[in-house]
């Protein structure tokens, strides 16, 4: 059923340019071929007849010959190609250079990709995103990347690109070059160690004390000196306590201890 579905999809591909030419590609057969090779292929944009392919499942088995067989016949139809971790090299340039509608190309981890390789694909007219992380491309392809007509993003982490090369790329407006060393967000402000106090009354439930200084010097429960962080609002007055336990004792039977506070 998978093959039939693929065939029907391709039969509907009336907008594909290659079907209009003399050397029309049998899309059905090519899509079947790709899927049989476990390459994911789809049309990501319903408004476009172009395709996306992702060779993640079989990356290590794809060399130049296999790439030629799988991808070259639909060169003019690719919108987005993920060839990450494949074994392609310069021999694949012949068909890659014909991918005139390609917008995104992922070559991450392809050891066969170097400066000369990048210099040739950078000319693709619609290529806007290019992943070169983990390739052998380096500063030698910077000029080509600067001249790439549509390039907006390029990833160069663990490539041969140096800080100087990345700095040159940064001079082109509208081009974001990610060398993998984007600085971390910094803590612009650190609050002091929090202290717990009981100064603010609950909204609408208790009037604010006239002063935020406790009315008492000694704890009404224990008689020990007051710790200013341990307070409670009682009958509109801020009462201080010596420890965390005394307020509970106080609140359990306030009348017992009110005498120590004096009259309001």
């Amino acid at each position: 059923m998978r093959c039939i579905a693929a065939g029907a999809l391709a039969a509907l591909c009336v907008a594909c340019a290659s079907t209009k030419g003399a050397a029309a590609v049998d899309h059905a057969a090519q899509l079947d071929l790709l899927r049989a090779a476990l390459v994911h292929v789809e049309r990501p944009d319903p408004a476009s007849a172009l395709y996306l392919a992702d060779a993640s499942a079989v990356a290590s088995s794809i060399d130049d010959a296999q790439a030629e067989r799988l991808f070259a016949p639909l060169a003019a139809e690719w919108l987005d190609l993920s060839l990450a971790r494949t074994r392609i090299g310069t021999a694949s340039l012949a068909w890659l250079e014909r991918c005139e509608k390609l917008e995104r190309l992922d070559l991450r981890g392809c050891d066969g990709v170097d400066d000369a390789f990048v210099a040739r694909i950078a000319r693709l007219p619609h290529l806007s995103e290019l992943v070169l992380a983990g390739t052998r491309a380096g500063d030698g392809c910077v000029d080509a990347l600067l001249a790439a007509p549509s390039l907006r993003r390029v990833w160069l982490w663990k490539s041969g690109a140096t800080g100087a090369g990345l700095a040159r790329l940064a001079t082109r407006a509208g081009l974001l070059a990610d060398g993998g060393s984007k600085p971390d967000s910094i803590a612009a402000e650190v609050e002091p160690k929090p202290e717990f106090v009981n100064l603010l009354p609950p909204p609408g439930e208790s009037p604010l004390p006239a002063t935020q200084v406790p009315i008492n010097v000694d704890c009404p429960v224990s008689g020990a000196p007051v710790d200013a962080r341990r307070t409670r609002v009682h009958q509109g007055r801020l009462v201080g306590f010596c420890c965390e336990n005394c307020p509970k004792t106080f609140e359990a039977d306030p009348k017992k201890y009110e005498g120590a506070l004096g009259k309001p």
């Binding site: 612009a188 609050e191 929090p194």
Partner: peptide, 29 residues
């Protein structure tokens, strides 16, 4: 909360994140 918070730079005026998540704070951007 008894944890201290820090304001990490982001694309707005920063975001406050607890001391429990400093690494995540470093990715606030």
């Amino acid at each position: 909360s008894l944890f201290t918070f820090s304001r990490y730079a982001n694309q707005q005026d920063g975001v406050w994140i607890s001391e429990l998540m400093p690494h995540t704070g470093s990715a606030a951007n």
